[in-house]
């Protein structure tokens, strides 16, 4: 069993809060919850956290700037780590993500184990 990182970019549910009614927001979050709960029940859920929209970027010379300076749809809004046997399975898991109801994308990356 390998671990995969699912990066949620754009379609950030956090910003939905302002755009839609609280009921719609609740209903949408409910879907995220259900998705993760189902993964947990299958033993595939290995952790997840949402991220705030601000951030700091530190670059060469330890220069610190505000924000990732990316277009809204590319901002990482959260991540999930899942257990899967291969990329195919991880991709199938990612396809269940409610982020696709908004126009977000999921980036699937395999976590390198024992590589460092």
């Amino acid at each position: 069993m390998k671990k995969y990182l699912l990066l949620f970019r754009g379609g950030d549910a956090h910003r939905m809060e302002e755009q839609k009614s609280p009921e719609a927001w609740q209903a949408h979050m409910q879907k995220w919850m259900q998705w993760m709960k189902a993964l947990a029940e299958q033993g595939k859920f290995a952790g997840a956290e949402p991220l705030t929209n601000d951030g700091k970027v530190i670059s060469k010379g330890l220069k610190v700037t505000d924000g990732p300076y990316m277009e809204g749809k590319e901002i990482v809004g959260g991540y999930l780590i899942c257990n899967a046997n291969n990329y195919d399975e991880a991709v199938e898991i990612a396809k269940g993500c409610p982020i696709f109801e908004q126009d977000g994308i999921v980036e699937v990356r395999e976590i390198l184990e024992g590589g460092m």
């Binding site: 919850m33 947990a40 997840a48």
Partner: peptide, 11 residues
């Protein structure tokens, strides 16, 4: 693990 993620802990 659902109680360890901010996505799911409250619910």
């Amino acid at each position: 693990p659902l109680l360890q993620s901010e996505y799911t802990i409250g619910h």
